[in-house]
């Protein structure tokens, strides 16, 4: 099952770009900028909306953001109810 997980330590380990905290921050800010751009993009095209809500400015972005926050926060509460130790069924 384990394959051949080699535990050999290569002496000086290479630093990766993502190992720098600064670079992770850069990705975060880049994502913010892209999102702002996409939000503004609603000015420039016709949505061919089937439903009226679609016409709201930035509807898809706001919906996606709120949906995910809702999903995670509800799941977090749900976990309190459902969580059991890992060996629950093995006992």
């Amino acid at each position: 099952m384990t394959g051949n997980a080699s535990e050999k330590q290569n002496p000086p380990e290479r630093r990766y770009w993502l190992d720098e905290r600064r670079n992770v921050d850069r990705i975060y800010w880049a994502l913010l900028v892209v999102c702002a751009g996409l939000f503004a993009a609603d000015l420039f095209y016709d949505k061919h909306a089937k439903f009226a809500v679609e016409e709201w400015f930035g509807f898809y972005g706001l919906y996606g953001f709120i949906a995910c926050v809702f999903l995670v926060l509800v799941a977090k509460q749900l976990r309190k109810l459902l969580i059991r130790p890992e060996d629950y069924y093995d006992r």
Partner: peptide
Amino acid sequence: AHVVTQLQLLLFSALAFA
């Protein structure tokens, strides 16, 4: 419209995660 709205939905979801 399809492409932009889908990208909005997804990238704002990513933003929520971040």
